[in-house]
Amino acid sequence: MADSPSSSPPETRPPGELAEATRDEAALTRFLRGLPGIDAVGLEQRAAALAGRAVKGEAKLRAIDRAVGMVDLTTLEGADNASKVRALAAKARTPDSRFPDVPRVAALCVYPDLVTEAVTALRGSGVGVASVATAFPSGRSTPRAKLAEVELAVESGADEVDMVIDRGAFLAGEYGRVFDEIEQVRAACGPAHLKVILETGELGGYDNVWRASWLALLAGADFVKTSTGKVSPAATLPVTHVLLRAVREWRDRTGQSRGVKPAGGIRTTKDAIRYLVAVREVAGPDWLTPELFRFGASGLLNDLLMQRETQLHGHYSGPDQVTVDL
């Protein structure tokens, strides 16, 4: 930690009392283990209760537009290539050609080798390019290879980097190692935004999700992100509550705003609105912006567009009215 090979920019250092937590591995471990617990029963009850809030009519239409603007349109398949990226880039710029007032999505999320293609296809559109990195999705590679991947993604023009944490190290209690890796990636990102994927489905409980969130925030994450989408369960409402609570407390303690990105398994407008309600209630209305909240999803966008039309015209139009982007 203190003797980490590359030190991060000073502005990402946590202020005040939290800086003490990052002094050395022992202090970090003490801090994370000393965090108050999360009670699973109560957490799930609250998540379920808030999911019952109704957003309808005009408010629903605005919520849909808001959600569209928060989507990180994602393609992370072995079969991805330049043509797939170009197809999604066109979708990202103009989600629904029949309705030019639909906002563009926040970013396109691809593998590092396709960043150049995505940057070219999205030039001038305002849509960001996000690249996964650090041996996504498992994170199992050597530190040098992971850092090199981040550097290459940023050199290729990625605005955002979605890294995965080393879950093996985290579960072994090697918090310092996880911290160092995030901090080094943070440094390698330069101006690019860093999203830190916790892969909550592998962490074995909310207490660990809570600790991992704090660990990522302490190490300089701009966003904490639930999942790669390759592990089940991916994002769930209660897990997202934990992340939202962490960024809220982070701001209460430091004044800095950090973001949250649930990813994987969010497919319907109904789901998306439930997440927005959670954002509003747990983190606060300030987080209802693409700068601080994103959806990592691929299928969600089309459902949002279909529901948007339903809100406008009062009837469903069917899946053939939205584009299938392959």
């Binding site: 809030r53 109704a54 957003v55 005009e58 919520a63 927005l276």
Partner: peptide, 15 residues
């Protein structure tokens, strides 16, 4: 941070 949001997510009466 962004400008303040003119339309924070509202809950419609679900009567």
């Amino acid at each position: 941070m962004t400008e303040p949001d003119p339309n924070p997510l509202e809950y419609a009466p679900a009567l």
